[in-house]
Design a protein around this nucleic acid. Structure first.
Lengths: 168, 168
DNA sequence: CTTGGAAAGTCAACAAGGCTGACATAAAAT
DNA sequence: ATTTTATGTCAGCCTTGTTGACTTTCCAAG
């Protein structure tokens, strides 16, 4: 327990890499993620939806016209799982599925007015919390926050994240 | 869409609070949390456990002798949900439940040698990723990361997080 | 000492949201 | 003409969350 991992490196100012510091980082991620999802979860409950619907709505809004396969890559779930969510969103008139013009096998997904309204309600709540946290922490902390999170992603997630940056 | 939220504040250097920046922060949290849980999830699968078991084992290790009620506060789930997880861990000999000496209604939870071994396997994998991310990002980024995450927590989570810092 | 209530455990039932496997259809690609 | 790809769907399973009802144990206040 005493000499695991980071303590092996010596003669450098790497105190931020001690197991103790790493453990704090891990627990901070756990508690922060709970806060991160708390507000949308409350709103979703009122509408009879879950987190899976939030994720679908978020990324359809981010990349309107995206295909089902593309969404599967982003969300990292099976098509059966996504399909259950998409079906209810389409039935409820929040998402529209348009047959592709170039490739008619593809379905292009768009939010309806109602879908966009829900997306706004969810993302405004989530942004409000993020904004408060960012404001409290300050711009330099925010830059560090982003840098660490990006490094924590898998390589493929990192690619998806950066692809979303620029937009479609 | 144009003048929501942060853009209302003007004449200040608050560009890090634009809706666009906040959206990036939200997506970064989503993808990073997936990476954060990916390694433990793989290990848990091999052992036939899930994330709920990881959380229980983690916090029992952090605060040995903690009571069930205390653990319920930390994890934020129902006792029925936690009980199912604890029962399997106890049956499998990873967790020991000792009747309280002062108050015999309470059960004090401890990891067995086998439980501690699993905890080590899980936390070492998770620390390895966190360590790599921290090292890449650097100490100032790490400080910012921690500051933002703490602000993102609910007030009660923040209290729990800080209580855990000092130890029992 | 009795009783109220807290701590813990248990049973049952349910829902969301993951998963696998199998199969169907349409359209593109070869 | 055949194969591959994109999508949808049915059936069934698992984990992990929920509520509600009930019991046992036991501390503490009356």
């Amino acid at each position: 327990m005493a000499e695991t991992g980071s303590r092996a490196v010596q003669g450098e100012n790497l105190l931020f890499l001690t197991d103790e510091q790493l453990r704090k980082g891990i627990e901070a991620m756990f508690f922060a993620y709970r806060g991160f999802t708390a507000d949308p979860d409350r709103i979703l409950l009122e509408h009879g939806y879950g987190r899976a619907h939030h994720r679908a709505v978020h990324f359809i809004n981010r990349a309107p016209g995206t295909t089902v396969n593309n969404l599967l890559d982003i969300l990292g779930v099976t098509k059966q799982s996504l399909n259950r969510v998409l079906r209810s969103l389409i039935e409820d008139g929040l998402v529209e599925s348009r047959v592709g013009t170039r490739d008619k096998r593809e379905r292009h997904l768009h939010l309806t007015a109602a879908g966009a309204a829900l997306e706004r309600e969810l993302s405004e709540a989530q942004r409000a919390r993020m904004r408060a946290a960012f404001r409290e922490a300050g711009p330099e902390a925010v830059a560090g926050f982003r840098r660490v999170l990006e490094q924590m992603m898998d390589a493929d997630s990192q690619a998806l994240f950066n692809a979303l940056k620029e937009g479609p």
